[in-house]
Every structure is written in C-alpha cells, then in structure tokens.
C-alpha cells in the first residue's frame, strides 16, 4: 500500500514538473497580452497599422508596425536566400560526398559555429564585415539589411546543415541502390533520389533556421543601422522587431502607450515564430511518419 502511494507521489512530481512548460507558455501569453491589451482602447489598434514607427516625438507619436515587420521580413528573406545554398550543399556534401575523415571533422566543427555567441558574431560583423560590405557595393554606409542578413545566414547555416544532414542520411539505402541498379550516376542519384526523398526534412531544417534568424536580436541591432523605413532594398538600413524591443524596452515609462506598443511588437514576433515553428514541425513530422 505504501509503495503504491509512493508511486503515485512520484508520478505526481513528474507530472507537475512537466506542466511547468505549459505554465510558462501560458504566462508568456498572459503577460504579453495583459501588458499589450490596454493599447486596444487608447489609442486604438488601428494605430498599429500605420506606416511610421516614431515612438518618441513632440508632435505625434506613431506606432505603425509596418516598417518593423517589413524590416524583419527583409532581413529574414535575404538571410534565407543566402543560407539555403550553403546549408543544403553543405549537408549533401557532408552526408554523400565527403570522406569519412572530413565528416568526422566537419560535423563537430559546424556544431561549434552554433556555439559562437551571437554577440561575438555581431561584434565581428561590426568591426570586420561592415566596412567590407560598404566597399564592395560602393555604399555610403555598411550598416544595411544585407550586412545583417549575411551574419544571420551564417548563424542559420549550422541549424540547416545539421538537420538536413540527418534527413539525408536517413534516406533508406535501398533507394540509392535501386537508383544505381537502374544505371543512374552517383550525381543523378543524389539530386533525383536522395534529396527529393529527404526534401521535407530539408524544408523543415530551413524553416527552423528561419525561426532562429527572425528571433535574433543582438546581431541585427549592431549592424543594420536600425532606421525604421519600409524598404525592399538590401542596401538600405532596416529596423527589425527584435532590435526595436531590445533598444527601446528599457527606456519606456511603464504603462505608457509606447510600452504597450512594444508588447504588441513582441506578440507579433511571437505569433510569427510560432507559425514558422508549427509548420516546420508538421513538415518534419510528416516526413518522419513517412519513413
């Protein structure tokens, strides 16, 4: 009898430990929502759809999220375009082409890259990359969306390589053997059989990488120039949602419109990353089920 009680108690402990995850998520939503909600009454949600982010002003404060969202999207988009070829080629190379020695060496090395703190990458970007971008493209300033995107791509590549590589190595050997038996060359097998078979895994990897990019703060704050303009040009300065929160949050008087607007930025950011994560999870799961 006593041991039964004990078993139950132990189970209870584990259950409550596990539910903290739910609690934390609930608290995050509750807290962000609670702080953001009064903005809906005064000055009203329509304020968030404006074209201008000018939270500190003697004339009229504007809290239009558009420049911040387009800024984040532009940087994320550019970073993804840059990261995908490197990430996918790297993954295919490591799993299909590389020698054993290369593979043993590269995998931990790339995992090390994932371990370089983002502030170190931002620091490196500010000192080394910014002047390079300025000179190569003949710009007036190297503080551009492109500079941020290059660094973010570098941060997304390990995620993309690691997860894609897993997906590619998991493609059943029989596929490749069948392809070879039909007379396909090694290259044809890689691109026409192996990669398509692993495609959903690769897509999920890319999306997870994007999730990391869109949520990254310090790097973009240090190198993108942070001007809140709506632009599609990689050579313009942009202000991302993350940098806006990091730069302005400490400053605002608690309870002001500006404070609440920043929580809305947080909510939009949260929703965007959540969607990305959810979709990539679904894709990954579908792919795993197929195996």
């Amino acid at each position: 009898m006593k041991s039964k009680m004990k078993e139950k108690a132990i189970k209870l402990v584990f259950t409550s430990a596990a539910s903290t995850a739910i609690l934390i998520v609930a608290l995050i939503f509750l807290f962000l929502g609670n702080e953001a909600a009064p903005f809906a009454k005064v000055p009203g949600l329509s304020e968030l759809f404006g074209q201008k982010w000018m939270p500190v002003s003697f004339e009229k404060e504007s809290f239009g999220l558009l420049p911040l969202i387009t800024g984040s999207l532009l940087v994320t988009f550019l970073a993804t375009i840059i990261a995908v070829p490197f990430g996918v080629c790297g993954a295919v190379y490591i799993s299909e082409v590389a020698s054993r020695f290369e593979r043993e060496l590269f995998k931990p090395f790339i995992e090390l890259l994932a371990g370089i703190p983002s502030v170190v990458i931002g620091f490196f970007g500010l000192i080394v990359l910014t002047p390079i971008v300025k000179d190569v493209f003949g710009l007036y300033s190297g503080l551009t969306a492109l500079t941020g995107a290059l660094l973010l791509a570098l941060m997304a590549i390990p995620t993309i390589i690691t997860i894609s590589e897993d997906a590619i190595s998991n493609v059943p050997k029989s596929y490749k053997e069948a392809s070879a038996a039909l007379g396909a060359s090694e290259l044809q097998t890689v691109w026409k059989v192996t990669v398509p078979a692993a495609l959903s895994g690769i897509i999920a990897a890319v999306m997870l990488g994007m999730g990391r990019v869109i949520g990254e703060t310090m790097v973009v704050m240090m190198v993108t120039g942070n001007a809140a303009i709506v632009t599609g040009s990689p050579f313009e300065s942009v202000r991302t949602m993350t940098a806006t929160i990091a730069a302005e949050m400490g400053e605002v008087p608690f309870g002001s419109d500006h404070y609440r607007a920043l929580f809305w930025v947080g909510i939009v950011l949260l929703i965007m990353t959540f969607m990305l994560n959810l979709v990539s999870h679904r894709v990954l799961k579908k792919y795993q089920d197929k195996q």
Binding site: I24, G215, T242, M249, L262, F263, G266, F274, N277, H281
Partner: peptide, 15 residues
C-alpha cells in the same frame, strides 16, 4: 507548449 517555447525569440523571453 514545448514546441511553442522552443520558438520564442530570446528577446521575448527577456520581456
């Protein structure tokens, strides 16, 4: 919840 938590950007954790 775990999936959501994994996707929360670090600055939002800061908030």
């Amino acid at each position: 919840a775990i999936l959501t938590l994994a996707g929360v950007p670090s600055i939002v954790f800061g908030l």
